[in-house]
Design a protein around this nucleic acid. Sequence first.
DNA 1: AAGTCACACAACCGCATCATA
DNA 2: TTATGATGCGGTTGTGTGACT
Length: 316
Amino acid sequence: MSGVVRAMEGKRRMVLYDEVGEIKKGPWKAEEDEVLINHVKKYGPRDWSSIRSKGLLHRTGKSCRLRWVNKLRPDLKTGVKFSAEEERTVIDLQAQFGNKWARIATYLPGRTDNDVKNFWSSRQKRLARILQTSSASSSTNSHKSTVQVQAPAFLDISPVEAPKFSSSTDEESVAKSQTCSSSHIDDNDTIKMVLFQDLVYPSTLTHEQNTLQLDYNTSQKKQFPEQESHLSFPQIPQLQPDFSLALESQDFVNRLGDPNFLDEFEPPCFVPDRSCQIPGRAESNDTVDLDTFISDFPPIDLFDDIEPLPSPSEWP
DNA sequence: AAGTCACACAACCGCATCATA
DNA sequence: TTATGATGCGGTTGTGTGACT
């Protein structure tokens, strides 16, 4: 640690000062906030470094800016949890943009990149824990062939409107193009598929799913030109019939680690309605209802061969 | 009541990019 | 053109709090 402890504040938090420049670190006091707010009122949200050079605060410009952007800005939704709609927006945009939190935050009024980042981080941890729990429980129940998996409460999200893109940059045009009609895949299914996606391919599917979604939308637009869509759904790879069959096999588990595994599911691999036919049973009327499919998923030993969730630093 | 855990939040750090002299 | 400082962004870590045991 380059700094030295000069003072203690509060119960446990320490206020640190840089050894050379008397740079204060740690939590902000109300008086400091006031100084910062007054500076912004006078000069606008810029010249952060001048705050220190003028001797107003012993904080770095970076620290001042961060405090303003993340906490003091008047248009922030402080203390308000992410709504279901906001959650879906983040999930959707993360799939499109990756970990571009600042960019994603621009679609969420009152939210900062830090908010979005923290939300996503918490979500990933939750999913990792679920994955771990599933893995642990499966190892003790591997003799069973099926298991009922209850979706965690945080995923029980009621249907909400997908994010609306009000401006019209090129990227947003792409976003608009990556849409589909809600008459074919309802919102509950979407959420379930998000769960499915996150459990099986945590943070790895975005490229494939974007590709697939684009292909799908192209074909859907040709098929349903009158439904020029206004809803943008999370970019979810829907299941092809082959997929549901694969789930019945232990081979599926073994193939999860195969980098070319997804290639077997050629686009457009979307379910046009709430049920899909099982291959090989096409002549019969044997279909799998999506609800049944999800509730029966995953097989008890599905996660046995899956590597632990990579840390964010290991993401591509 | 005390300990543990999960979660939300705040803030720092390192690096990249931009602006300007 | 280059050096330098300012700013922005993403990753990470530390702390407080509430729920649960």
